[in-house]
């Protein structure tokens, strides 16, 4: 069920997606249109399938034994689950930021440069430029520009998360998936990340899973509400929060459960 959407380009079209772990369906027949250069928030109570859904968008379930994905995820006209699609190259186009910051135990520079290095950039000067650009875009450059050689593990939680975002930006994706990126961070770091996401949507398409409805209301253009594996409703955030079509959505938003 979709509320009337604005007529922007669909960057990703998810059709009838179902994800099974063994016999259990974690996501059931979900369809969603993800608009380009917008922030789409996935909300819902714990265990409702939103993380499973987002991980299906960059084929992370390929690595989970026993996981099965049915349905179509169409990016720029191509179904990413088609047999001739290379998931490794796909993840180049669709980057992911995880709930807990997971920097590599290497220097700050090496963390950001790692992605471009494997994808072929070897030239020292272009790598340095790319690292600087990514760190600037992630609003981290000023804080680390004098210590790029230091271990990434010395940074604070908020800084590490921005480093992970810079790392993803360095491979120049088109879409950024974020699985509760600020849930492990304090409020100040959280607001920095939210400002960052608002900036990022100018150049990228962002899909973010969030536990916090307030966060979704604050910074997303579109919202999708999940409940027990069903994508109950989706649409422009303003509409979802002021006049939701489904009673379950209304109950969740007004705090009757969750």
């Amino acid at each position: 069920m979709q509320a009337a959407g604005e007529e922007t380009t669909a960057k990703v079209q998810v059709d009838d997606l179902s994800v099974y772990y063994g016999k259990v369906a974690a996501v059931k027949h979900a369809s969603l249109k993800v608009h380009e250069n917008c922030v789409t928030a996935l909300i819902g109570p714990s265990g409702c399938g939103k993380t499973t859904f987002i991980r299906a968008l960059n084929r992370m379930h390929d690595l989970t034994p026993g996981a099965r994905v049915e349905g179509r995820v169409v990016l720029d006209g191509i179904d990413i689950y088609a047999p001739n699609v290379n998931p490794v190259l796909l993840r180049h186009k669709i980057g992911m930021v995880f709930q807990r910051p997971n920097p590599f135990p290497k220097s700050i520079f090496d963390n950001v440069a790692y992605g471009p290095r494997i994808h072929g950039t070897r030239n020292g000067a272009s790598l340095e430029a790319l690292v600087e650009r990514s760190l600037r875009r992630a609003a981290l450059w000023n804080e680390v520009k004098d210590r790029l050689d230091r271990s990434a593990l010395d940074l604070s939680g908020g800084q590490q998360q921005r480093l992970c975002i810079a790392r993803v930006l360095a491979v120049e994706p088109e879409i950024i998936l974020m699985d509760e990126p600020a849930s492990a961070l304090d409020p100040i770091a959280t607001s920095k990340i939210e400002d960052l996401i608002n900036d990022l949507k100018r150049e990228y398409t962002v899909i973010i899973v969030t536990h916090s409805m307030q966060q979704a209301a604050r910074m997303s253009d579109y919202t999708a509400f999940f409940l027990l594996g069903d994508l109950v409703e989706s649409g422009p955030t303003r509409d979802m929060f002021t006049r939701p079509s489904d009673k379950r959505t209304e109950d969740y938003i007004t705090g009757r459960f969750g």
Partner: peptide, 15 residues
């Protein structure tokens, strides 16, 4: 921690 492996995979690296 599996998170480190997933971080690398999400950048487009082979397992």
């Amino acid at each position: 921690p599996r998170a480190i492996l997933e971080g690398a995979l999400a950048l487009g690296m082979t397992t």
